[in-house]
Nucleic acid binder design. Structure first.
Lengths: 237, 237
DNA sequence: GTTGCTTTGTCGCGGCGCTGACAGTCGCTC
DNA sequence: GAGCGACTGTCAGCGCCGCGACAAAGCAAC
């Protein structure tokens, strides 16, 4: 149990890095029953899916691409909370008691997603125990990631946090297996900075150092992770 | 809507500070059906309810007292995640895919709680849609609080974070109405420090300053909040 | 009382990283 | 190609706050 040795797992186990997929474990007839209530939607890289203050009427399930979730601090600074991967749900605060969005969702790639009205999705949740269980798992998983982030921000240096982030993003992607050690993170330095709670300038310096050591490769608005293992050793200084 | 003006609300509304109660909105026959599956348990102040590495087999619902939830960073430092108030659930990671506890729960008062086996509670969740909905609300609520904390830690000074914390703890308590502006927070300086991600020494300094200004009153292992409004103005420097 | 542990109070040092400023570069649009 | 905005690179300055050290004061147990 504990730690899975091989990354080749179609149905993600507990301790594996790959994230919980909302629809894993569902039969095809259940799936089609679910998607019958959804409309598909696509947006292009950089577009905002919703912003603070928007009416919260829908929940989204990501089919393709990645989405950045962030909040705006009172001083106006953007603080990124999480990067959503395909198969995950987002905007689900609409389900509880949010009438207006308190955070912000932005497409990092060209994205494709299902959109459900909160009403429809609530009904699906209550009528499909398996779905409801997946949902609870997924949300719990995300919370555990937030706990880790909280712990990292208060106890680790900026360079270590950057390595953690890149490592986590690389291994949690569903596409990880296909692209192997060349996973491309679609983030600007500013994005990385806001994800780890640091200044853009400090982030730039660390990223350049990582590139000089041949661990990553920098592009404009993207980072290619070349060697996962070295990321970890670098993080330890 | 937005912000509720009066604190006198028995059934907490969306934007109100008081936290979601897991059992609010349930009928008495549903309640007794639920508690039939639980055993009661009590622990005294300071005791650990569970620790990292323990087998995760139960979930807890707090009846009386307060509980501190924290994680241990790799360097061994304790990082407090949240303070659990009566009516809330904790240890619910056991429901998803946690076989061993990754965090730590400690009683801040003498506490009284219900204990459910994860199996029983899962069955309750799937058979009682109302309960399941409450659960989803409560967990969502907690996540929103974590997002706020994340944002605060990276964008606010230590003094402001302390004020935010004291204010939040004072107003989110179910006992708030009875004790009015004299809510007592059962935390040591060290506890406060770990909740806001700061050093104990810095925390002590700020707390003393707050006491000198007559905003709070310090006891050994406890803080009495005397004036909520001044907390907010102090936070703004 | 004495012993011992936990909590609190205070100080100085040093460094990480935030801030502000500015230049260079890339990619887009017209 | 000209212009413009977003992104990247770098540096000097400095301030907040973490850290180590130590003393005092409660509290508990005996």
């Amino acid at each position: 149990m504990g730690v899975a040795a091989s990354p080749v797992v179609t149905f993600p186990g507990p301790r594996h890095n790959q994230r919980v997929q909302l629809f894993s474990g569902l039969g095809s007839e259940e799936l089609s029953r679910i998607t019958a209530h959804a409309r598909s939607s696509r947006q292009t890289r950089g577009e905002f899916i919703y912003m603070p203050g928007d009416r919260a009427e829908c929940v989204y399930i990501l089919k393709r691409g990645r989405v950045k979730l962030s909040v705006l601090s009172e001083s106006g600074k953007e603080i990124a909370i999480d990067i959503i991967q395909p198969g995950e749900i987002f905007g689900e605060f609409a389900l509880v008691d949010e009438s207006q969005r308190s955070n912000l969702a932005q497409a990092l790639d060209d994205v494709l997603m299902w959109v459900f009205s909160k009403h429809d999705f609530t009904k699906l949740l209550t009528s499909l125990p398996k779905l409801s269980f997946s949902y609870i798992r997924l949300v719990g998983d995300r919370r555990r990631r937030m706990e880790k982030k909280l712990s990292d921000i208060t106890s680790k240096a900026v360079s270590a946090r950057i390595c953690e982030l890149l490592h986590e993003l690389s291994t949690s992607s569903v596409e990880f297996e296909t692209t192997a050690t060349n996973y491309i993170v679609p983030l600007t330095h500013q994005d990385v900075a806001s994800l780890i709670g640091a200044a853009r300038q400090t982030t730039t310096t660390v990223l350049n150092d990582l590139e000089r050591r041949g661990i990553i490769e920098l592009g404009r608005g993207s980072i290619r992770v070349k060697c996962l293992k070295q990321l970890q050793t670098y993080a330890a200084f």
